[in-house]
């Protein structure tokens, strides 16, 4: 199982390194979102932690959805998903590897987004930013788990990307609210201990999405 997982992850990362489609698209979308929001907020509200946290999570969700969609769509090219279904790999392993590959691509783009956020929102480059990392990692895992699962259905449809957004966004709302609250608090200087509740919500949603994906992928990919 681990060999198959590693082979799939290595393959996805090789394809991404060669094409760079997901990371580049995610970075460009994040940049666009941040530019639009920083202009919309103006110089006064733009510097507030709440605005920065909101912008960060809008960038995360708007760039993350097409990222997952692209990663899943790559398996439909030349019917490669059928090749995987015919292989000895368990469907859950295929799902886990896809989530890991999307999460890694998204993590790279988020590092770039975080740097842009510091520049555009005039944030201090200090320990508060490091405290954002666990919050963002939990948010990313949940988004990847959910959008990879739903992307398996929508990538075969016309207007699949739009449908993916429509299906994912409502289910992701609890994580979105918890993530924005926790990020705003941390950027205001609060410690991680002060945002335990939002972190628990993020972790619980992650667990739910991952378990659902693990159990349902077999049926949705078929």
């Amino acid at each position: 199982m681990l060999t198959g997982f590693c082979a799939l992850l290595h393959k996805d990362l090789t394809l991404e390194r060669r094409g760079g489609r997901v990371v580049i698209e995610l970075c460009v979308l994040s940049l666009l979102v941040l530019v639009v929001l920083v202009v919309a907020y103006g110089p006064e509200t733009g510097g507030r932690p709440e605005s920065a946290a909101g912008a960060l999570w809008v960038a995360l969700i708007l760039s993350g959805l097409p990222g997952a969609s692209l990663a899943v769509a790559a398996e439909h090219e030349n019917d490669c998903l059928t090749g995987l279904r015919l292989s000895p790999l368990e469907p859950a392993t295929i799902y886990a590897a896809k989530v890991a590959a999307v999460a890694l691509s998204m993590a790279v783009s988020q590092a770039a987004t975080l740097l842009l956020l510091v520049l555009f929102f005039n944030l201090q480059f200090d320990l508060n930013l490091l405290r954002l990392i666990p919050i963002l990692l939990l948010g990313t895992l949940g988004l990847c788990a959910l959008s990879t699962l739903l992307g398996t259905i929508t990538s075969r449809l016309r207007a699949g990307e739009m449908l993916l957004a429509l299906l994912t966004a409502p289910l992701y709302v609890p994580e979105l609210i918890a993530g924005v609250k926790a990020s705003a608090a941390v950027l205001s200087g609060a410690s991680l201990a002060a945002v335990v509740l939002p972190l628990k919500i993020l972790a619980a949603c992650d667990l739910l999405f991952v378990v659902c994906g693990y159990l349902l992928f077999e049926y949705l990919a078929g």
């Binding site: 394809l15 090219e77 030349n78 019917d79 059928t82 090749g83 015919l86 292989s87």
Partner: peptide
């Protein structure tokens, strides 16, 4: 499943590999 080989109309190959 490891004991089965299948070829279909589509090659199931990754075009960028």
């Amino acid at each position: 499943r490891r004991r089965v080989g299948v070829t279909l109309h589509r090659s199931m190959l990754y075009l960028n590999l």
